[in-house]
């Protein structure tokens, strides 16, 4: 489904990410873990053509993402606030995104009804997005990513700033989507969340994928061990 082929990304003189080969197939839900600066967001941004690889290419369904717009029709993504249009109301923003994917207002309302467990009640308020709290912005962005009924969902730290209720809702939602055959790629700092949601974990360190695990009962322990070892090696 998505293939990273011989990817190297260099920022200025600084090496940022290197992936000789990574194939993510349709049935997978992939979680990226790693410390800050390990290349998680870079990897996700490459997947949706926000940045261009220095060498190599990213293919989605066999087409190079920087040379085709096809993937935009079946990929829903939310990486950060720059995906939101700050001076629109949440409703207007969502219906704008819906419109781009050929959905009319009642489609959007239906979608919101189905997912009413997630957003705050005042989604219809006249506040502009720029006036919302970080958590609520995050929610709008995730909803906008899911609204077009994508076949690939790419989210960068979707659980951050969310309240406990929305977190468990989102976990359930992502698992449900995965069950429906939708590819999920997320990053997270919370090892509990990723191991609960994802069936494949990629551990990144300094721009390299150093572990590629399929999730089982021991995965969480293994990851925790890895990170606590890192801490102890710093303190020694």
């Amino acid at each position: 489904m998505i293939k990273f082929d011989n990817i190297i990304k260099v920022y200025g003189a600084k090496f940022s990410l290197s992936i000789p080969e990574l194939i993510i197939s349709q049935k997978e839900s992939v979680g990226l873990v790693g410390n800050n600066g390990s290349g998680k967001t870079t990897l996700l941004s490459l997947g949706i053509d926000l940045i261009r690889p220095t060498t190599g290419s990213v293919l989605s369904r066999g087409e190079i993402v920087s040379e085709s717009d096809e993937w935009k029709g079946y990929t829903g993504s939310y990486l950060n606030e720059s995906f939101l249009i700050p001076f629109l109301t949440p409703m207007k923003f969502l219906s704008f995104i819906g419109q781009l994917h050929g959905k009319n207002r009642s489609d959007v309302m239906n979608f919101l009804d189905q997912n009413s467990g997630f957003f705050m009640e005042n989604i219809g308020s006249q506040k502009y997005i720029r006036e919302l709290s970080a958590g609520n912005k995050n929610k709008i962005g995730i909803l906008a990513a899911l609204l077009p009924e994508p076949e690939i969902v790419i989210l960068d730290e979707p659980f951050s700033n969310l309240d406990p209720g929305s977190r468990s809702w989102l976990k359930a939602k992502l698992r449900k989507l995965h069950g429906e055959g939708i590819t999920i790629i997320i990053s997270s700092h919370d090892l509990n969340h990723v191991t609960e949601v994802c069936n494949r974990i990629l551990l990144l360190d300094n721009g390299n994928i150093i572990k590629d695990l399929s999730t089982n009962n021991e995965t969480l322990q293994e990851l925790e061990n890895y990170f606590s070892m890192q801490v102890s090696s710093y303190t020694d």
Binding site: D69, L79, N80, F83, L84
Partner: peptide
């Protein structure tokens, strides 16, 4: 600039 990414990642024809 502050929301340019949303135009890149969404289905908008250039």
């Amino acid at each position: 600039g502050s929301y340019f990414d949303s135009y890149l990642a969404n289905k908008i024809s250039a």
